[in-house]
Amino acid sequence: MAIDFAAAFASREKALGWPDHQTGERIVFCERQTYGKTLQALEKRVASIFGPTEIADRWTKPRDYKPDGNATASDPLYEPARPFKVDPAQFIKRAHMVRPAEPEPTVSAFAQWLYSLYSTTHGDVHDRERGIETERGIGQGLSEFFHADMESRDEKMEQRRAYRRRKLCELGDELQNPSFTGWELVHSGLHLLDELTTWYSVPDLCVGNVPLRASPDLLFLNRVTGEVIVVEIKSSEMEIPSNLWPNIWGQLWCYAQIPFVREASRVTVVGEVWGERWIRESQRARSTYPHLFMRASVRRDPRAKAFDQFFRELFKLYAGGGGGWLPCPIPQ
């Protein structure tokens, strides 16, 4: 029997803090969810991987948002998302100036270097500390965490990290849906505790003589059509640009160079952003519980000429090459 997602969450939306005029899919996971609500959230999440989906962001005002008088100073909303604008020539120029002395042959290190090229204007140390806080699961209302001893804190943080990793790679039986015929999850780099995560070697991208190591968060292959979808997952409570950040796309561009991905008939890369907040289940509830919200899902073709040239140029600089002139602007 189909579950009405909107109806299932209708009684909780005021407690969850959704703006009245918020549009898009509302994808939420919580450990205390019923099976039906979890199944519906899974359906929505999987659909967002295999097709363009507008996501409602719990942290951002919709464009037609009108305050209802219930917003508080402690729970502000970001302004409607705008694109992250890049001047390719200036970005490449800065990359020339701050090439790493000892680049590491990993995709994550390349992405961190890309982040450093713009972090002073689109994120600072406070943003990173807030991101780390979110990653650790230290949320609003978790006062008992601060009064626990160090061993208990570590245990609580690991439990939260394990829950998020498990939930973000859980697909249930959704791939058995006829709409997704042929699709198979062939790799998960989310480092689940009971799984050994493997790495791909990318011989076309070398640092010195060492091929880049890559471990995508989620990598799907369609055995029928030969298509590939690669998903990169980020956790953030920062303001999100409508086209996400360059470091996410640089990371996904690297994954698109994995040998069997390069041979795919078609490649789509998807950037997901999630946020976590400890909130009450209802207005009358006394305890707060962690809720995992999808905040954004954006997709691109990594083989697009401008996209490929831009990140290939940056990788040459990162790996120690001289780079060259970039004739095409990266699309916004």
Score class of each variant (00 low, 15 high):
G250D: 09
R153W: 02
K61I: 04
I279C: 15
L142A: 11
Y163G: 12
L190Q: 08
G182S: 03
P19V: 00
Q112M: 13
I229D: 00
V230C: 09
I132W: 04
W249H: 04
S265T: 15
F146E: 12
R32M: 11
A7W: 03
G17Y: 11
S143L: 08
E174P: 14
P329V: 11
E237M: 07
R164W: 14
E135N: 13
K37N: 01
I330C: 06
S287M: 03
K85R: 14
E281K: 07
H96F: 13
A71H: 12
P88M: 13
W249V: 09
G322Q: 04
S152F: 02
T72W: 09
W274H: 02
H96A: 02
R303H: 05
H291S: 03
E135Q: 13
T60R: 11
W274C: 15
I240C: 05
P103F: 01
G141H: 03
E158S: 13
F91T: 05
H96V: 03
Q257L: 05
A15C: 11
L171F: 06
G139C: 11
F50Q: 00
M157I: 10
S265P: 05
W18A: 07
A214P: 02
Q33M: 06
T23C: 13
V98Q: 09
S116P: 13
R280P: 00
I138H: 12
A304L: 06
G182V: 01
F293M: 14
A41C: 10
R153L: 14
E195G: 08
T120H: 15
I330K: 06
S235T: 15
E170M: 14
E144N: 05
F220H: 00
T121V: 12
N209G: 15
L168M: 14
M150W: 05
E25M: 11
